[in-house]
Design a protein around this nucleic acid. Structure first.
Lengths: 253, 253
DNA sequence: CATTTTTGTTCCGTTATTCGGAATAATGTT
DNA sequence: AACATTATTCCGAATAACGGAACAAAAATG
């Protein structure tokens, strides 16, 4: 289990930073111990270091740690280096204004789909996903549409991933591939309630000028009393226009 | 120089992640050595660890490292935990649509102002600032307006910060404080070309229901041939309305 | 194409540093 | 006030991080 030449204290430190999430922005020392399975003293020492580096903030009155805003600069150095996001952003705003629904931009990372931009309506009910959130590609509308437009070779590599074994116990692989083919023909994907009951999403691929998928834009909505097919129809045209515009604006590979 | 009980390998690992930025998304091993002043072998070992943890990606053909998208999840755990951003976002879109200028939301962190949301026009010329970017509070419109609405005690603490010594060699401190008072009276700040020649920005404070500043919204624009005062006048009203709405929607402290 | 220079990777002995159990201190709880 | 929980300090042991040097692989140069 021991990996060779591996700086474990770095790993442990990052485990601590990663322990915080949306629903747990404040954690005490013991919380962190539980979440990381590291001994108290170790966590304490690492936290002290992270506080000194300002990646963590400590509230001495409540004995809670909180990620410092400085970690943003880590993450955003990645985003900033993504031309895609910059280019897409204005077109996404247009789309958002046109359809008046939430709009997301995501890319494929390993077997996951990661949100890199997100425009949200003012709503009480909102899906707890944000920029940086990950979803299994196989279950999300964006993921499926990206997979559908991938080269066979790349697709195979992903579908063989061990972490998808469970998924393919419940879903026939050949059927899944056939479904992807149908998505490719149509040019967009629709996921209706599979991820979460009552939640529908349509997604379209962003193709660069070499016709390679680089991202996907999706529009999720709740099916209350509306006719889903009708709704999808009204969304598809603006969505497809949007991804086409983004693709055209992208630089060559 | 040695700090007590300090996990230095964690620090070094984070130095590596922090070495990447917008203009340097790809770095080689030697690049990283230069930027961090760490010995080759050490950097190599740390990079190997970060790659294994997927916080770094390695392109073996070009011998370059690149931050993995996974670091996003670190940074965004912070953002996600910020109700403020969530609440403000839709109002910022409204403002953006209304004035058709870039719109930024930022908060104070130490003596810096950090962007936590940013809406951008489709433009060739764009300021190279993004979510996570930091600016000295004393020189930015957002920073100044936040400072202006701070308690005297908090303000003093910031103005005494050692890293501002240089600033207060060139600027008289009393004059600066008087300027802040004027900003407070007006309710907004205007920075005209002080940060960058030809760049103007107006900013207004987001006050929570206890009348405490929690953030600022600003609108930057380039003064080409337009009348700056005129332009400012047209922006102020929508801007002030926007921050008021955000403030009202915020939860109690 | 041969030579030199730069850059990346492995090796390995040394020692500093991380480690974590146990003791102590500080908080909170009943 | 007694107890329980959580945070912090201490310290000796052992590991794991360190970095110089040697080696390998690319690039650059002539």
């Amino acid at each position: 289990m021991k990996e060779k030449d591996f700086v474990s204290s770095l790993k442990k430190g990052l485990m601590i930073l990663a322990a915080f999430d949306e629903s747990n922005p404040f954690l005490t020392l013991t919380d962190l111990c539980k979440r990381t399975n590291l001994p108290k003293t170790t966590v304490f020492r690492l936290c002290r270091t992270l506080v000194a580096l300002e990646y963590l903030k400590y509230d001495s009155s409540k004995h809670t740690y909180q990620p410092g805003i400085k970690v943003l600069s880590l993450g955003f150095n990645v985003l900033a280096s993504m031309e895609l996001r910059d280019i897409a952003s204005p077109y996404l705003i247009d789309l958002f204004n046109e359809v008046n629904e939430n709009v997301n931009l995501s890319i494929l990372d390993d077997i996951d789909v990661v949100y890199i931009e997100r425009l949200k309506k003012r709503e009480i009910l909102n899906i707890a996903l944000h920029v940086g959130s990950r979803l299994k590609a196989v279950i999300s509308s964006s993921g499926r549409v990206i997979l559908a437009f991938l080269d066979k070779k790349e697709l195979d590599k992903i579908l063989q991933h061990k972490n998808l074994n469970n998924f393919f116990k419940e879903h026939n692989k050949d059927d899944f591939i056939k479904m992807l083919e149908r998505i490719r023909e149509k040019g967009y994907s629709v996921v209706d309630g599979e991820y979460f009951p009552g939640l529908v999403a349509v997604a379209a691929p962003v193709l660069n000028r070499k016709n390679k998928v680089v991202a996907a834009v999706n529009i999720p909505f709740l099916k209350t009393d509306i006719d889903v097919n009708q709704k999808v129809k009204t969304l598809i045209e603006p969505l497809l226009k949007c991804v086409k515009k983004i693709g055209k604006t992208l630089p060559y590979d």
